[in-house]
Structures are given as structure tokens and as C-alpha cells.
């Protein structure tokens, strides 16, 4: 009896849910990493602002950490295409998993909403190191074995190191670490010669004079650290940027997808959101759907080339 009754109640709930105007129930923002991390904070700040524009909507962060985002990305693809799951993703892992055939999804499984933030790659050494430029690094690597810490195989750091190797002909002794904290201690404690990391992870230590960022792997210098030269300025065509974007399943209805795109645009242009992001060391980089999709496709092709040479 109880079961019948509850089934009825449930049924009624589901029906009202199905016919009410979107959004009529809680929207999940899937974060493919741990609570308290940078992607997590981005999501939480996004929700904070999104509530301003969708006053009646409810949002919740669902953390699905692990395996370089793969657990979370796969989860995003398995959810119902009802528009109540918005996935956060980060590159290059999102496409790298496709290339390395670990992922069961492809880019075509998703509608790309847009990019939120970016974090350029960097090359960093201990403050006491004799290496001051990328030229120095190449010289050192030609004279002895240089150990380079990267955050796991297949990560942006790894890909940057591989690009650097391909460009210069040097060969690093790669040290894969679990997480950026290990890289940080390895650099600050002088256990490795060099590390490939991201700007936000080392900016504070660079400013405090404990570590030296010798290059930003980007076309232009970073606003927050104008003193650090880019790789391009030093005549090395090594570019790597981690980006953090938003996706939904490809088979979400167009009307709903458009609403989500609109929300994305509203939030990313919101001055309050921009101010809070800046304070949290999140470098905003708005790039709407199509533009970001092209970026992802190119990235995937680039990674494919690295993978074909040295698979992992």
C-alpha cells in the first residue's frame, strides 16, 4: 500500500517536472575534481552569480574527482540529456583522454557552452637555480640529465614538456607527480631541476622570491605577472594553456541549450563575478561555444600528433 501511494506521489512529481518550464528542478554543476580546488571554486562562484539571473533556479555542485578528470567527464556524458546537468571540464585532459583512448566519450557527445577561465603553462625553477631563461635550460639539458616534474602523464604539463623536447631536441628525465603540491615541494626543496606547471599554482611563490618562473607558455604576457617573459619572446614555439569550460550533452533540446548559453554569457560578463574570480586567482577567458569548440578540435589534433610519436 505504502509503495503504491509513494509511486503515485512520485509519478505526480515527475509529471509536473516534465511539463513545467525549464528550469523547474535543481541543476547539477558537475565538477570533475575535488572540493576546494580551482575548478570547484570557479563553479561555486558561477552559481553564486547565476542565482542573480535565474532567481527561481536551484544549483548544486557535484564533485566527481579522479583520474585526471576522466571520472567526472564520463559521468557528465552518462547523465540524462534534460539540461539539468551542466558539466565543467578542463583541457587538455578533456580531449587528451579521447586521444589516449581512455575515454568512452568523444567531442561530438557534447554541446560546448563556452570557456570560463584559463591558466597558462609555465616553466619554473628554484630561485637559486642558475637557469634564468629557456636558453639556459636547453644548455643545461645538453650538458647533464635534467629532471623535470610534470603533474602526471597525459596532463598539460606533460604535453608542454613533450612539445619542448620536440622543439629543442633535448630529452628530459620526466618525473610524474600526483598533483601540483608535489611539484611545488620538488621545486622549492630543490629535488628536481625544473617543473612544467600552471601560472596560478606558482605565482605566489614567484612573487615571494622562492621560485623563478622562467617562461609563460603563452602568446602574451600575463596581466598578473607582467615581469615574466613568454616562450614566444624567447623564440620557443611552445604553447600550453589549461582552460576550464562548460559543456552539456549534445542531445539536450536546443531551447534549453540556448537558455544555458544565455546564462553563461550573463555570468561571464557580470562585473561582480569578474571581481571575485580575480581575487581567487582565476584568470577569466570568455570564449563562447563555437570559438571554444574550434579550439578544442585543434587541441585534439595537436595532442594526437604527440601521442602518435610517444603514446602513454
Amino acid at each position: 500500500m505504502k509503495k503504491v501511494l509513494s509511486t503515485l506521489v512520485l509519478g505526480a512529481l515527475v509529471i509536473t517536472g516534465a511539463f513545467a518550464e525549464y528550469p523547474s528542478k535543481t541543476i547539477k554543476l558537475v565538477v570533475p575534481s575535488k572540493a576546494g580546488g580551482s575548478t570547484d571554486t570557479t563553479a561555486r562562484l558561477f552559481i553564486d552569480t547565476a542565482k542573480k539571473y535565474w532567481k527561481n533556479a536551484d544549483f548544486v555542485v557535484v564533485n566527481k574527482p579522479g583520474a585526471g578528470g576522466l571520472i567526472g567527464f564520463s559521468y557528465e556524458q552518462r547523465q540524462k540529456p534534460d539540461g539539468y546537468t551542466i558539466g565543467l571540464m578542463f583541457t587538455p585532459q578533456f580531449v587528451a583522454h579521447i586521444v589516449s583512448k581512455k575515454a568512452k566519450y568523444t567531442l561530438d557527445d557534447f554541446k560546448i557552452i563556452g570557456n570560463l577561465a584559463q591558466d597558462p603553462g609555465i616553466v619554473v625553477v628554484n630561485a637559486k637555480s642558475e637557469v634564468k631563461t629557456l636558453d639556459d635550460l636547453v644548455r643545461l639539458a645538453k650538458s647533464k640529465t635534467v629532471t623535470a616534474a610534470v603533474n602526471g602523464i597525459g596532463s598539460d604539463d606533460f604535453l608542454a614538456a613533450k612539445q619542448f623536447e620536440a622543439q629543442t631536441g633535448v630529452k628530459f628525465n620526466l618525473l610524474p607527480t600526483k598533483g601540483s603540491t608535489e611539484q611545488k615541494t620538488a621545486i622549492l626543496g630543490n629535488h628536481v631541476d625544473v617543473a612544467f606547471m600552471n601560472l596560478s599554482q606558482m605565482l605566489a611563490n614567484h612573487k615571494a622570491g622562492k621560485a623563478r618562473i622562467i617562461a609563460i607558455l603563452d602568446m602574451k604576457r600575463a596581466e598578473v605577472a607582467p615581469d615574466i617573459p613568454t616562450s614566444v619572446e624567447q623564440n620557443y614555439d611552445v604553447l600550453m594553456t589549461a582552460t576550464r569550460g562548460m559543456v552539456i550533452r549534445n542531445d539536450v533540446k536546443k531551447e534549453i541549450a540556448d537558455k544555458i548559453r544565455e546564462l553563461y554569457m550573463q555570468v561571464i560578463k557580470d562585473p561582480d563575478f569578474q571581481a571575485k574570480a580575480k581575487k581567487s586567482f582565476i584568470f577569466l577567458d570568455p570564449r563562447p561555444g563555437d570559438e571554444y569548440r574550434k579550439y578544442l578540435e585543434k587541441l585534439q589534433a595537436d595532442i594526437q600528433r604527440v601521442y602518435d610519436k610517444t603514446p602513454w
Binding site: 512520485l10 509519478g11 516534465a18 547539477k28 548544486v60 557535484v62
Partner: peptide, 16 residues
Amino acid sequence: FEILLPEPTVLEGVLS
């Protein structure tokens, strides 16, 4: 804590 506990799924498939 905003942890989404498992929701009923048994009927949704029938309806949509």
C-alpha cells in the same frame, strides 16, 4: 552540505 542524494529514477524512463 548540498550533496545530491540518489533520486528516484524508476518512473522517469517510463515518462520521457
